[in-house]
Amino acid sequence: MAADAAARRRRRFLMVFDFDETLANESSDDAVVRAAPGGQQLPDWLRAQYREGRYNEHMQRVMAWLGQQGATEDAVRAEIQNIPETPGLAALLDFLRAHADDFECVVMSDANAYFIEAWLEHTGARQLFLEIFTNPAHFDAASGRLVLAPFHAHACPRCPDNMCKQRILRDFLEARRSGRSGHQERSGGHQEHQEHQERSDGHQEHQERSDGHQERSERSGGHQEHQEHQERSDGHQERSERSGGHQEHQERSDGHQERSDGHRERAYERVFYVGDGANDVCPCLALETQDVAFARRDFPMHRLLTADDTHDTHTHTHTHTHTHTRTAATVQPWSSGHDVVQYLQRALEER
C-alpha cells in the first residue's frame, strides 16, 4: 500500500559512529599528550596508576598533569584538531549529507565532549550529527586544565565503569521510537548535545561549566531540537527539563529498554554501527538481523566479532575484559569510508 511505503520511507536509517580511530584516525587521548610543553612524555608513575575499567579516571589524571606542565587550552585544542580523518571519511560524510533524508547520525564515544566537538567543528562535520554521547568535559579557567567526568554508572560487565554503549544505544532507540528527540541546537544552526551522567553513589550531579550556567536549547532558522538527559540512578525515573517549562519523563531499569510487549515497531528501519575498538562490541549485541556492524578491519572490534566463539576465550583491553560474543547483525569489515559508502548505496537501492 502507498501508505505503508510512505511510512517506511519516514523511518530513516541510523548511523552510529565511534570517534577515536573511526572518525579521527588516532586516539585523541594519545594525541593530546603532545600538548605538553617541550615534547614531554607521560611519566612512568602516571602510567602505572591506570586500573583496568577506569580509563576515564586515568585520563582525568593525565589532563591534570598536562595542566600542571603548562599545557594551554589552545595547545590542547590544536593537537586534537590536527588529528587526521580516517581514510575515505570525507567521501562517507559527503554521501550522508547528500542523503540526509535517509540517514540520521550520532556519535557514541568514550572520548570526551571537548575533544569531539573541537574536532568535528574543525572538520566542518558537526551539523551532520544529531547527538553526541560521550563523557562530559570542559576547560576550567581557574585550574588551567580540561576537567573530565564519567558519562554514567552501569552494571555491564563488558564495559568500562564510566560508559556502556549498549545501554546508551538501547535508551536512544527507545526514546526515538517513543517520539522523544533528544538533541539541542546552538545559535547559528549548529547541533549540540551534552549529556549529564555524572554519579556519586547513585546521586545525580550536574556537568560543570566554565561560566557555571547550564546551556539551554535555542531555536534558529525554524529548526527545533530538544536536549535529552539520560541521567539515571538505579532505574529511577529522571526528568529532562526543556526551555519553555515542558518536561519529558524517561524511565530506565539498569539500561534495558522498557517494553509493554515484545513486538514494538522499530525506531529505525536499520541501524548501522561504525566502530573499531573492543568497547564497540557491546552495543553491537543490541543490533538485530537487519542491522550492520561495520568493524574496522584488523582492529579489536573486527577480531572480537569474527572470533571463533567455540573457544572460551577473553580479550583484555585497556578498558575492560571482553568475552567473545556474537551479534545478530551482519559484520562488515571496513578499511576506508569508501567501503561503507558502497554498502550504504546498496542498502538504499534495496530499500
Rank of each mutant, 00 (worst) to 15 (best):
M63S: 02
L92E: 03
C105T: 07
H318P: 00
C284R: 04
V281K: 03
W334Y: 08
R216V: 11
N25G: 04
Q227H: 12
G179N: 09
A48R: 13
Q342M: 04
D309W: 11
F172M: 08
E208L: 14
Q60R: 11
H223K: 11
G182P: 10
V271R: 00
R8N: 10
R51H: 04
S243W: 13
E218P: 01
R296W: 06
W65E: 03
D291W: 02
V147D: 01
D171H: 11
A141N: 08
R177P: 13
F133H: 07
R11Y: 04
R97E: 14
G235L: 05
F129S: 11
G179Y: 13
H246Q: 05
A267W: 02
E215H: 14
N56L: 08
H316V: 15
P136C: 07
L128H: 08
M59S: 09
L66Q: 00
Q224C: 02
Q49C: 08
G39E: 01
H249R: 10
L46P: 04
R145Y: 07
A347M: 01
H58N: 14
F129V: 09
S181L: 13
A125P: 00
E215K: 13
D18T: 05
A293M: 12
N25R: 03
H213A: 15
L287F: 13
G275M: 05
M163V: 06
L96H: 09
A31D: 05
S220M: 03
A286K: 03
G277S: 09
